[in-house]
Nucleic acid binder design. Structure first.
Length: 113
DNA sequence: ACTATGACAGACG
DNA sequence: TCGTCTGCCATAG
């Protein structure tokens, strides 16, 4: 995996404020790659960032991560859906323009950025 | 080059 | 609300 791409993805994740979430697709669009790459990067380096603020388009995470994510979410006021599978992304999704701006600032120091 | 595989997404039955 | 299929992009055989 391209180091710069990994860096961009991790930075994008870190720009998501406490109590908010984004989808893999949102990050993919922002950094210019596919959503599957975002998943791959988080699978490998997710331990270093706020991975629980990144869900799929339905506000869910894979089963192995649900328990830990639920704890993290509770700590920042994100409520789990009744079915226990995820959160209402419509309610907690970040403000995309503000997030994109924060991302631009944070990546200003990177090559060709 | 071709195929298979992912923490994905959207369309469809 | 489930499967299934297709599109997606990067890696590994």
């Amino acid at each position: 995996m391209n180091d710069l791409l990994v860096e961009r993805i991790l930075v994008a994740v870190e720009q998501v404020p406490r109590g908010r979430v984004v989808s893999y697709g949102d990050i993919a669009e922002l950094v210019g790659t596919g959503p599957r790459q975002v998943g791959s990067v988080l699978a490998q380096w997710g331990g270093d960032v706020t991975w629980w603020r990144v869900t799929n388009a339905a506000g869910e995470l894979p089963a192995q991560l649900r328990a830990e994510a639920a704890r993290r979410w509770a700590a920042e006021g994100i409520e789990v859906k009744p079915n226990g599978r995820g959160c209402r992304i419509a309610a907690y999704r970040v403000d995309l323009p503000a997030w994109a701006t924060a991302y631009e600032q944070a990546t200003r120091h990177l090559p060709s950025g």
